[in-house]
Design a protein around this nucleic acid. Structure first.
Lengths: 226, 226
DNA sequence: GTCTATAGCTTGATAGAC
DNA sequence: GTCTATCAAGCTATAGAC
């Protein structure tokens, strides 16, 4: 037992495949950061899950913070473009699009990635929302915020078009409250499952998206009246 | 410079007063856990902020996890009773109370503590919402959830009274989405401030409560229609 | 490029003097 | 009760053999 096998017991069936060591490290980091947070995840745990020697971490990525950045950057541009396209498609329908349509266009690209994108994307979405909820993570949060700033502006602009008589600040409150609900739901662990006795499942993001669109269609309309 | 003064530079103007060492430790822990999270806070940092020698931490509270529990338990019962009373007052008005009234009754006790309760209560409220957003914190989260379970049931019951024609699961979705928005807003650090160019302030919880009541009054009514 | 071994700190917790 | 000194373990990051 001179050394650990590359496909030994420590290897994770999800991350240890035919991918390169570099990819496996990012995959493992993504999953662990999403599950345990940045501070709660050690570089050793990442190396173990990726089944690579500890030294490779620094060789490929430098510090732990640099690796975190890499996890974000690997998917953020594609994801943001994804949402932008979804919003654009609705914007082209002009006034025919309802508030519910706009909310759905904003929310569904995230839901689809989380549900159909595989475990990597699911972890990324969780990490994305987790970063927005974590204090003392200024550098991390700012990195994410920058990547999605343009998409947020598009969305707010479309909401504004549906709130012609509202005070400017109410457009921002509408976005803020909707986005807060959505972000929190993405990190949720299942408190609603227990509370509802199994009638609702937090992991059922499609239903969540539908209820969000329904509620905020009415809620934003109310706010828009002044 | 044989040893650090009890009122020396390391002492925090907030926590180092006439209180006992034991109280100062809990105060310092509360504030640091709220600002940096559980993993991000070291027992040394707490001791430094409380201006107490490191050894006293274990003497009074045992482990770091025990100290965290103490931070929760110090205020949770009083806070939960506070919210229960607020809900009860609205419940006594029977059908006269609107959905907005019920939402306000649920939200305002938290807002009032955060704004008028002093820095200790402000930190506690932040920690409360932070715990609901943190992964890998099962033991912590469960401790909080247990303390507020009864209040949540009361609130859900009152919502149900206002949604007589709705499917049972929609009552839970209504609560879940509202609570998610509220919880996330309590940890927010000011992204809305920047986005709105200063027109909205995340710290202005009174306005947040007002907008929440307005939007969810309409949103829950819509959901209640089926 | 890959891996082992370890340096250099910081962590939570405690032993034992006062 | 209070405080200093320190332990054992775990951390990130790196030096240097292969």
């Amino acid at each position: 037992m001179a050394r650990k096998s590359r496909t030994g017991a420590a290897a994770d069936s999800q991350t240890a495949g035919s991918q390169s060591a570099k990819e496996r490290i990012v995959d493992a980091a993504e999953m662990l950061f999403a599950q345990q947070g940045y501070e709660g995840t050690t570089t050793r745990a990442i190396a173990l899950k990726a089944d690579v020697p500890l030294g490779l971490m620094s060789y490929y990525f430098g510090t732990k913070g640099d690796l975190y950045s890499e996890v974000i950057m690997r998917r953020s541009a594609e994801h943001a473009a994804d949402i932008a396209a979804s919003l654009q498609a609705v914007a082209e329908r002009g006034n025919q699009a309802s508030i519910a349509d706009i909310v759905t266009a904003f929310v569904m690209p995230v839901v689809r990635r989380a549900l159909d994108g595989g475990p990597g994307w699911a972890a990324y979405v969780k990490l994305l929302s987790l970063a927005a909820n974590t204090p003392g993570s200024e550098p991390h949060t700012k990195a994410f915020a920058r990547e999605y700033a343009s998409v947020v502006e598009d969305f707010v602009g479309m909401l504004r078009g549906k709130m012609p008589d509202a005070a400017e600040e109410d457009v921002y409150w509408a976005f803020y409250i909707l986005n807060s609900a959505f972000i929190h739901i993405l990190v949720e662990n299942g408190s609603i499952d227990r509370l509802s006795g199994g009638r609702c499942r937090a992991s059922d993001l499609e239903t969540v998206a539908q209820k969000l669109a329904l509620m905020f269609d009415a809620g934003i309309a109310r706010l828009a009246k002044g």
